[in-house]
């Protein structure tokens, strides 16, 4: 009886899981495409989120627009071009690779490259400018005899 009760409790607890799994499994091609496009577009009222992740009503409406346009047969490129024509480059999560935007894409690599060059140049210059270490002073006869004595006495 005890085991039946435990089994029933576990069944009740597990109950909601299959339906939520089903939601994921049943994701249609339209849902997938909507998600992929929505992830590339910025939520204009929350600014740091894309419209797929945003809970803002405008983001929800934008997702609906994407879905409707996909259902009408538009391609992802056409849908992105539509949003771009309404909001400009700002709507894109990744700035397009053209014009001044190349500075954003290449800037960090250029800074790293030229910074490394500068660092390398300075290290080479510093190592060249540093005089080599002077040779150790030679032992005079008295010091050498003393050293021999001490070494022999230890052995």
């Amino acid at each position: 009886m005890k085991w039946i009760s435990i089994f029933c409790c576990l069944s009740l607890l597990m109950g909601p899981c299959p339906s939520s799994w089903a939601g994921v499994v049943d994701e249609s091609e339209l849902d997938i495409q909507t998600r992929e496009i929505a992830k590339t577009l910025r939520c204009t009222v929350c600014q740091t989120e894309n419209i797929w992740e945003s809970g803002a009503p405008l983001a929800q409406q934008m997702r609906n627009v994407i879905r409707e346009r996909l259902a009408q047969g538009q391609t992802p490129e056409e849908i992105r071009a539509y949003f771009l024509s309404r909001y400009g480059d700002y709507i894109l999560m990744q700035p397009p690779k053209r014009g001044i935007n190349w500075l954003i894409w290449l800037g960090p690599f250029l800074l790293l490259f030229f910074g490394s060059l500068l660092l390398l140049r300075e290290v080479i210059r510093w190592t060249r400018a540093t005089p080599p270490a002077p040779p150790p002073p030679t032992l005079d006869e008295r010091a050498r005899q003393r050293l021999d004595r001490e070494l022999h006495s230890e052995s």
Binding site: V45, L58, Q61, M62, N64, Y87
Partner: peptide, 13 residues
């Protein structure tokens, strides 16, 4: 009703 006018006009807020 569906927010489409605002999106068509590129409304932010």
């Amino acid at each position: 009703v569906k927010g489409t006018i605002a999106i068509d006009y590129g409304v932010y807020g």
